[in-house]
């Protein structure tokens, strides 16, 4: 008995304690404040009354304006996630499988965009897709079109901007997952008669699913919480739920409603994580990261 007491390893507790308190201080307490604020009442712009009432929650639950925004956000998030998965798998596969001696260079190229501000990367599309942008300039110069094609300020440009910004997260997750697969498995499948595509489909792809799923979860959640990209690249009807939060907090100076909407978004995106956990298991995330 005495030996068991002496042998109790306290190191995990000690190591986890700082992270635990950091999460309490930086996530749980602020979120609790937001939840409490959602019950306050906005009297006038920037003037709130301490109260415990459900007016804001009732409005969110019953107003179709918010329901449409939720639907639109989920639809755009899903589309962006699928596009990022399709576009991200190929470079991730290439980086993982290449025999190129300087693989680190490819990984560096992948993280290079993070050196430039997210907003600047988003704004750069105006110079590519705009009326006087690079693409229209090329098309007009080649005589393919008589006048510039409208490619900006619509849902297409918003999705493009979101895919562009979040694609590295997808690629990195898939890459890490692919990198962890035993390199002998695919050749083994080939020796057993599988065609290259068949070997990929039945061996590599299933084994890389944790990375693909983790990347998809990240891209979905990040897209769902975006608001700057639609502001910059979207037209009047291109917005996400985050833009409604911005409106409530910054332009209407209605913090209680902003808090209600923020918590609603948190619950929605949290539900996505729960669904992911139900089907994939959150432990798959750790597998994705090696």
């Amino acid at each position: 008995m005495g030996d068991a007491t002496v042998g109790l390893d306290r190191r995990p507790v000690l190591l986890l304690t700082p992270a635990f308190f950091a999460i309490i201080a930086l996530v749980v307490i602020p979120m609790a404040f937001i939840l409490v604020y959602s019950f306050y009442e906005n009297i006038d712009l920037a003037v709130d009354k301490v109260a415990f009432q459900f007016g804001n929650w009732k409005e969110v639950a019953t107003d179709s304006y918010y329901h449409n925004a939720i639907w639109k956000t989920l639809r755009i998030s899903l589309t962006v996630t699928v596009l990022a998965a399709l576009l991200g798998y190929i470079p991730a596969y290439f980086i993982a499988m290449t025999k190129f001696r300087h693989k680190w260079l490819l990984l560096l190229l992948l993280i290079l965009p993070f050196w430039v501000s997210f907003i600047i990367r988003t704004l750069s599309w105006i110079h590519i897709l705009g009326n006087q942008g690079a693409l229209n300039g090329l098309f007009v110069t080649l005589g393919l079109v008589g006048e510039p094609i409208r490619m900006m300020f619509n849902e297409f440009s918003v999705m493009l901007g979101l895919v562009h910004v979040f694609l590295p997260y997808m690629i990195l997750n898939i890459y890490v997952s692919l990198e962890g697969i035993d390199g002998n498995l695919e050749p083994a499948a080939r020796t057993l008669g599988a065609k290259p595509w068949q070997a990929f489909k039945e061996v590599t792809l299933p084994l890389s699913m944790p990375g693909l799923a983790a990347g998809s979860l990240l891209v979905f959640v990040l897209t769902g919480g975006s608001y700057v990209t639609p502001l910059i690249l979207g037209g009047p009807s291109d917005f996400l739920f985050g833009n409604l939060i911005y409106d409530a907090v910054v332009t209407e100076l209605n913090w209680p409603m902003g808090a209600t909407l923020s918590f609603t978004l948190l619950v929605l995106l949290g539900a996505v994580v729960v669904i992911y956990s139900r089907f994939m298991g959150l432990n798959q995330l750790s597998k994705a990261f090696g």
Binding site: D44, D247, T251
Partner: peptide, 16 residues
């Protein structure tokens, strides 16, 4: 008028 009408504008702007 700002409290009510600014909210209205944010909705109209987004297609409501």
């Amino acid at each position: 008028a700002e409290k009510d009408q600014s909210k209205k504008w944010n909705r109209v702007k987004k297609g409501a």
